[in-house]
Design a protein around this nucleic acid. Sequence first.
DNA 1: GGTGAAAGAAGATAACG
DNA 2: CGTTATCTTCTTTCACC
Lengths: 154, 154
Amino acid sequence: MNDIDKQIANIIQADGKASSAEIANHVGISVSSANERVRKLKSIGAITQWRGVLNPSAFGVELLVFIFVDMSYEGEYEATCALTECPEVQEIHHISGPHSYLLKVRVKNTVALQEFINTSVKPLKAVVKTETLMVLDTSKETTEIDLGHLNKGG
Amino acid sequence: MNDIDKQIANIIQADGKASSAEIANHVGISVSSANERVRKLKSIGAITQWRGVLNPSAFGVELLVFIFVDMSYEGEYEATCALTECPEVQEIHHISGPHSYLLKVRVKNTVALQEFINTSVKPLKAVVKTETLMVLDTSKETTEIDLGHLNKGG
DNA sequence: GGTGAAAGAAGATAACG
DNA sequence: CGTTATCTTCTTTCACC
């Protein structure tokens, strides 16, 4: 994992459709070498997947919310497993602070949100309390990580 | 935008490397038709981009945090613009409730977090207060949206 | 909208320097 | 690690239903 690998990863995380030729040109190596590096980055789990990103509202999914979920220790594992299975749940984070978990959830509308909370969250044994934050507007949303100055702070 | 389009979008959001032939097979149309539908989904903005997803820890980015940012109205726009430019910031959501904004931020470690808050957040005029939630563990993280039962709740 | 065929581009593999 | 050659696969385009 040297600087060229990071450059390649950076290209791919910005454009999943970048061809091997484009990658090779940008980092200044041959196509076959670029191919080999991408293969290796994938095999060691540095690049985990390729995805198309959809515009939720184009599919009628208009609501984005974050939900704090407070859980008791008993049944915690089962609860997170159940939540993982919910297609509306995009992210599940175990967090520090007064709340146990933070969920990122996308649903069609408030009716669907109500239904999700009532049928998929509240029935879980471990769930003690929930607190929902409605997102009014999202000005940035990317999966890109900062590979620009990895020496920062370390 | 019919059912076949949604099926195609669903395949692509799960696997950005799915070939036209694979897509065509799965939805039961010809390769050229599948291609045309993908082109159209892209042109109408239903599919916004293709991305490779990196494993942050493979690149030394070990910390994920959510930061509540309270802002005054004055300078709010400039502040969000400035935050948008920060590579550490993956998401910026304007939210309801006592806090103004919720940021999703990835940095190398606590030192980098400290530096980010001190140099990129606190100096912004509109920023009144911040509250940082540390993520201890992430059990699910995807960009996929639920296209399975779009009639839910509507 | 959909199909199938053909030409061009890109990917994967292997031998060699 | 780069080059070249080869094989395979995907994409794009076009004429046609």
